[in-house]
């Protein structure tokens, strides 16, 4: 399965990934990270097409995207 890993160390909660995901499967979480930011969560991982747009638009290079078999 395709997957998206979001680093709570690097993420600063700008929501650019949420805005640009073509599948609209990212949403800002409601719990602050230890860094004090809200991090996005993947609402429907099954729908991820591993396009990498979220990672492209993440200024902090906080997202890694993996394409499954």
């Amino acid at each position: 399965m395709n997957s998206v890993q979001i680093s709570a160390l690097f993420c600063k909660g700008c929501a650019y990934c949420v805005k640009f995901c073509p599948k609209q499967i990212l949403e800002m979480g409601t719990v602050r990270s230890r860094k004090g930011h809200f991090n996005p969560v993947v609402t429907d991982p099954e729908k991820c097409i591993a396009c990498g747009i979220c990672a492209t638009m993440c200024p902090e290079a906080a997202i890694e995207v993996t394409k499954g078999e």
Binding site: K12, C51, G52
Partner: peptide
Amino acid sequence: MAKVYTRPQSLLPVPSGFCPGCLHSMAIK
């Protein structure tokens, strides 16, 4: 399993010093 995007090796594995949403981070990335 193939990586579509991984964090650049040319950046240190630490958070940037820029404000949230600042595109200086994007530029150096």
